[in-house]
């Protein structure tokens, strides 16, 4: 057979097709990223329980009314400039951070101590954690071997064990003899009114996040020589085990316990 030339495909209209697609995507694209403050809603309690007594020093209570005024209850009173709010939160976390447990005991007994109205830290050392792990393991085993046991209880015991395991890992990573932990009851509480604007509400959340970010960032730079933002963004991308442990240590050091109170009708 005679050699035949393969006819070339005319690609002149390729650009037109590509343009058409391009314009379609140009028009439908929205470039804004969704950003938000993520919060947990507490579980509903079916059986009403007696309220737990919480010392005033462990509460950082922010009140925001419908007129746009913000108060910090039992602390600074009215806040004129909302940008100061994050500094107040920082103070709440850091006031007693450097006190040793013995100094904290003294401060707790003395109402005139400057740190008396702020949450105290406890130092957990390795021996204590190991002891708690042993206890939790035994307890879990005993519960598992009990007949007709509610799986929820086994779950609960397993959670306690894993909590102490996490702490052990965190302490190892922290690189000191002890792990400083803020009083487990310490929290920030936001109370709003029905007509408090969303803008003010998110501004308060913004200030809280700013404070927590600063605290964790400082700790992160000291321990890992890396900024908190870098670690958490990297974790978002590759979900690596190492970063997860780093983040959980920072979270242990500075927990973000926020309570949002439903306004009365």
């Amino acid at each position: 057979m005679a050699k035949r030339d393969i006819p070339e495909i005319n690609a002149g209209s390729m650009a037109d097709i590509a343009f058409l697609l391009l314009i379609f995507f140009l028009v439908t694209t929205t470039m804004d990223r969704d950003q938000a403050y993520k919060r947990r809603i507490p579980k509903k309690i079916d059986v009403p329980q007696p309220p737990v007594e919480i010392q005033n020093r462990n509460i950082f209570s922010i009140l925001a009314n419908s007129a746009g005024e913000v108060y910090i209850e039992k602390r600074d009173g009215r806040i004129q400039n909302l940008d100061d709010l994050s500094d107040k939160v920082l103070e709440f976390y850091q006031k007693n951070e450097k006190l040793t447990p013995d100094e904290a005991l003294v401060a707790a007994a003395n109402p005139n101590h400057p740190g008396n109205n702020y949450p105290f830290y406890t130092w957990t050392d390795e021996e204590f954690i190991k002891g708690e792990i042993l206890k939790a393991e035994e307890d879990l085993e005993k519960t598992e071997n009990t007949e007709n046991v509610d799986p929820a209880i086994v779950d609960f015991k397993a959670q306690i064990l894993s909590k102490w395991m996490d702490k052990q890992k965190a302490l190892e990573m922290y690189g000191k003899d002890y792990l400083p932990e803020i009083d487990y009851q310490a929290h920030c509480r936001i109370t709003v009114q029905q007509a408090t604007t969303y803008e003010l509400f998110t501004k308060i959340h913004s200030e809280l996040n700013e404070a927590i970010f600063q605290l964790r960032d400082e700790a992160s730079k000291e321990i890992f020589n890396e900024s908190y933002g870098v670690i958490s963004r990297r974790f978002d991308n590759d979900q690596s085990r190492e970063d997860a442990d780093k983040l959980s240590l920072l979270k242990l050091l500075y927990p973000d316990n926020f309570i949002e109170v439903k306004p009365k009708r």
Binding site: Y37, K38, R39, T196, S206, K262
Partner: peptide, 26 residues
């Protein structure tokens, strides 16, 4: 300018079905 009261009503509703993660867009 939205009133926060409505958001808290939503939270109560979500709590009923255990949808416990909420995010406030900014």
């Amino acid at each position: 300018g939205a009133p926060t009261g409505i958001i808290f009503d939503m939270r109560t509703e979500l709590q009923e079905i255990e949808a416990l993660t909420i995010a406030y867009a900014v």
